[in-house]
Design a protein around this nucleic acid. Structure first.
Lengths: 190, 190
DNA sequence: GGTCAGAATGAATGAACATTCAGTCATAGG
DNA sequence: CCTATGACTGAATGTTCATTCATTCTGACC
């Protein structure tokens, strides 16, 4: 009997977590504060998640997946690689600028010990939808011979971290930065 | 009567903080655990630092400064810009590989709300020794017209994050990555 | 309208936390 | 040798934390 209300409560808890972690970090964010921010009782989070770690992990995976989908959504399959790269990049930018809390949550989770657990879990899960996307595999094939994680960091890491700092970016800076990321991942002689 | 012993105790506390944060993150690292790891009593940390925040901030600034000095130490003032860039980059790499805990501490602190406080404090402090170094200003002058923080992120961010993951890097990967970072910060038509 | 499963509640619990402080100790200056 | 100074100690303090659970609520189904 999982109702729509129940789903929304679980979502409210996840979003409250994102908001509070963005503002106060992982230390400084208690389950009581999360519940209050979500407008539910303290026990409610435990109806949907076994523990705080479980909640954090689920939220982290959801944020990452939503980011991947948003990025992929704006890509034209028939465009050139360089154009696709720009579309992917601005897809990430606009998705995160729409709610910078997501970016702040993401960078903190990625740097924390949670990232190790999340990584393991992602490995054991079925194929990553990002890595199995033809657009992404096509782009990766054209890039320098570095491990995919490193290429991701070079390609879109800067946007994620920059949107996390809240400062809005000039149009001119954005253009220069996309160009810089593209240069990083592609070799001139190829 | 600040003795050598006192100085070493303060240092022991800072290093214990780095080790534990690297392993357990900021949440998950208590003052009691820090003191135990440092081999001192719980009260000792408070003789040298007013609070946990104070300790974290002092440690963060020390780690950052040591990294800057180590990076600068290996640079030949008469080398070409590209060579100097490589020397700076490997300086960071070797300094962090010598104790990857520093890298793990650094990335976590940089993503946490501590970073805001630290940034403010760095601004109000006297001139940043890195930014006033002729080598660094010389290099920055040759780079793309992006804010210095962004250029730092593009130039050495990848090494810091990569050494933080503990995995040792292949020599061939390192060469490709330095080249990628250099391409990112420099425009081909200049 | 009665029954039942699961969602929701929030006060209660015990562990863990940052911080304090009364007292001990080491040492430098006299 | 004595004393003053500041480092050091660790048990004690009050708070905050994650988690639990007996209970109440909700709405689906017969």
């Amino acid at each position: 009997m999982t109702t729509a209300v129940a789903v929304n409560r679980a979502e409210a808890v996840r979003h409250a977590l994102i908001r509070l972690v963005a503002r106060d970090g992982f230390h400084g964010t208690s389950m009581a504060a999360i519940a209050k921010e979500a407008g539910v009782a303290t026990g409610t989070a435990y109806v949907h998640y076994a523990s705080k770690d479980d909640l954090v992990l689920a939220t982290y995976l959801e944020v990452k997946q939503a980011l991947g989908e948003a990025a992929l959504a704006g890509v034209d399959p028939d465009a050139t690689s360089r154009e696709q790269f720009g579309q992917l990049w601005t897809g990430v930018q606009h998705h995160l600028e729409a709610d910078p809390n997501r970016a702040r949550f993401l960078v903190q989770a990625d740097c924390s010990p949670y990232a190790d657990t999340a990584h393991e879990q992602a490995m054991s899960a079925p194929d990553d939808p990002l890595m199995s996307s033809p657009v992404v595999t096509g782009l990766l094939a054209q890039m320098v011979d570095l491990p995919p994680e490193v290429l991701f960091d070079l390609a879109v890491g800067p946007v994620i971290r920059l949107t996390a700092t809240q400062r809005r970016l000039d149009e001119s800076v954005v253009e220069l930065l996309i160009e810089a990321c593209w240069r990083a991942v592609t070799s001139p002689n190829s």
